[in-house]
Write a protein that binds this DNA or RNA. Structure first.
Lengths: 162, 162
DNA sequence: AGTCATGGTTGTATTTTGCAACCATTTAGT
DNA sequence: ACTAAATGGTTGCAAAATACAACCATGACT
């Protein structure tokens, strides 16, 4: 009797697993769409901030803007990029006056990279342009629904991140 | 009187807009995290399918696997990639026996690209490995919640696409 | 002090990309 | 039906991005 009950419970768990797998498949599907879409828009947004910016430099800059000052090696880690490549991109961004570098007081080897006010202004303009572009489309969405989606993604991010 | 009432209503709309802006900012924050994370894992997954696969060829292959056969120019559009670049990647994938090409019956110029059974098997193995990796972490999530997130993303994708 | 790890720069070879020219085929205009 | 323009695809070429390794300076650990 008890054995049969355990079988039923195990079947329930299995069925739940299958449904979860399907749900995850659907989620990955949407993430893929999002990824492709963002990838398409990346070059445009980068150009909007500065015509000289390429598809690698822009995400680095955006990361510094969003998460605050970081070291070059942090960026290399975040993007799984060669530190040599990061070094060159950093020099480009310095040349464009989009980031600035200050010595790390805690570590004589390192420098802290932060966005300049120029970059902040450019990014703000870009965000504003995007907001106007999407404003009409998003107007049908209640802020609560958007929050809900953001929170769901946050949970998902937490789950999949080490 | 009526003028005052309209002012109040307009104020409500403005306040809603501000809240929506904040919500969108939060959403973009999470999307950024997600994309960075996915980007980091991309190379690994590509290598899991085939060691020769680079970070560009894999998304193309995955797209063919998910959305079915497409023409090279479709892929170029989807990824905003130069058609020359796509052409070369396609040849690599053909060489690796991961995709196959058949003439388009509707258009003498075009070819239809589709994944081979070999690629399907490799992709299935990769998905399985990922599922095992995330299985434990996702086990705390009810399938309904995952579906909810996927549907939210789907709506968002629909909103921001063309 | 001595060894090793880490942050960063630079040289070099390889890969990837974008642009343009080109061919074959299809579509549009008249 | 005939020409002109557009589209799918390949290839050559030059510019760019990247990985890899060597290297220097600093810091951490023993």
């Amino acid at each position: 009797m008890i054995g049969a009950m355990e079988d039923v419970r195990r079947d329930d768990v299995r069925r739940d697993d299958v449904r979860r797998d399907e749900a995850v498949r659907g989620l990955e599907h949407e993430i893929g769409r999002l990824l492709r879409r963002v990838r398409r828009g990346l070059t445009d947004r980068a150009a909007q901030v500065d015509p000289e910016l390429n598809a690698t430099a822009y995400p680095l800059l955006a990361t510094l803007a969003e998460f605050g000052p970081h070291r070059a090696s942090d960026l290399a880690d975040m993007f799984a990029l060669d530190k040599g490549a990061v070094s060159r991109v950093v020099h480009q961004l310095l040349e464009l006056d989009l980031i600035e570098r200050t010595p790390d007081p805690k570590d004589g080897r390192a420098s802290i990279l932060s966005v300049t006010s120029k970059a902040q202004a450019r990014l703000a303009l870009m965000v504003e342009a995007r907001r106007e572009e999407f404003g009409a489309r998003l107007s049908g969405w209640e802020p609560e629904k958007i929050d809900e989606l953001a929170q769901g993604l946050a949970r998902f991010n937490a789950v999949i991140s080490d």
